[in-house]
Design a protein around this nucleic acid. Structure first.
Lengths: 198, 198
DNA sequence: ACAATTTAACTAATGATATTAGTTTTGTCA
DNA sequence: TGACAAAACTAATATCATTAGTTAAATTGT
């Protein structure tokens, strides 16, 4: 008799990642996943809590991976350089792991505890990079929200519809971040001047 | 005998819109849709090409609606005012029609002819608003891509995870657009100075 | 006004899916 | 070596989209 193939969670997540990155998040089903792993689909329930459970495990895994990648990219850099590095790695991750990135965005139950922790850590990384500008608390939060909106929006549009015009997409990305940072510096300078008037 | 209820495409799209806006795009199935309409699910095939066909019809419908809303908002305005108006209406639409907006973003077959036309018209509206700045062709495309990235990214993040910090989300949105426009003006001014040196 | 045609509803059946319950195998540990 | 737990399995169910074939109703042409 052939040995029963024995599976653990990391193996499942690896196979699931391959599926979503090559065929999209929609294509992730327990049937095809089990087949890929050489087991029967009910066996998956020993490791995950059904399809919803798999989706959230995958999101957590993807978010952790993304966070470790962008954290590494920001090491030893500060200010605009760190922001650019973050933006670049963010985009590179989304391009090399489109399905995983999608899983991170679309979590059906955002209240799940472990997910919230992981998501918070990712935001925390961005917050740290922006702390270097010495913005006040309000402005800092606005800046972080803005940065994440820009990066995610660009990634999402590029993936879901593609930018059709025959102009470098990477240049546009650079333009986006660049223009925002330019505006941010202008704002800081204006605030500085206002302060000196007192 | 009770009359057979008779259905047409607009009626289907209306019911589908209600479902997705209240329960999310994922919840849109032919079974529940048919039940809501008082018919049997196979009857839907007389009007739409299965679930994929329904999804694309819904996306086209949503994109048309979005375009008509933001077009109206930009009438009689120009420059920064027009950009702000566009951004505001875009966000307002996404908030009042979350499912429909989602349908517009996630089209499974972006090659479909009628969809491409509709999507192009939406982009064209944004392009027109940015024409007022008199940017060169390259910069203009970068600016439009940037604007759409910012707006969509913000909408997407707000919906999918919510901004957790106890700071006004609307203020952040304003900050985002504002900072970008400030940067854009700085860039234009710099280009202007460079031109005068010749 | 009535017959013919077309539209759009219906029922019935199929295949794929996730999921649950209950069973058997296999690895581990006392 | 034997007991226990983990994790595979089979079998069964409910739900879903989809297809084929059928019937009713509206529309059209004479």
């Amino acid at each position: 008799m052939s040995q029963r193939t024995r599976i653990d969670l990391p193996t499942i997540l690896k196979a699931a990642t391959e599926i979503v990155d090559s065929q999209g998040l929609e294509s992730l089903g327990l049937a095809t996943l089990a087949q890929k792993l050489g087991i029967r689909s009910p066996s998956l329930y020993n490791h995950i809590d059904g399809l919803p459970g798999l989706r959230i495990e995958l999101a957590i895994h993807g978010c952790d991976l993304l966070n470790s990648v962008i954290s590494r990219a920001a090491i030893g850099k500060s200010g605009d350089n760190a922001v650019y590095a973050l933006a670049e790695e963010y985009l590179a991750f989304a391009r090399s792991h489109p399905g995983l990135y999608e899983a991170v965005q679309r979590v059906s139950d955002p209240q799940e505890g472990q997910w919230q922790q992981t998501a918070r850590r990712l935001v925390e990384t961005v917050v740290q990079v922006f702390q270097h500008y010495g913005l006040d608390d309000y402005t800092s939060i606005h800046a972080v929200r803005s940065f994440r909106s820009m990066v995610h929006g660009f990634i999402s549009l590029e993936r879901n519809e593609g930018f059709k015009m025959p102009i470098s997409v990477d240049d546009s990305y650079r333009f986006l971040i660049d223009t925002f940072l330019l505006g941010l510096h202008s704002k800081m300078q204006a605030a500085q001047c206002a302060g000196e008037l007192e």
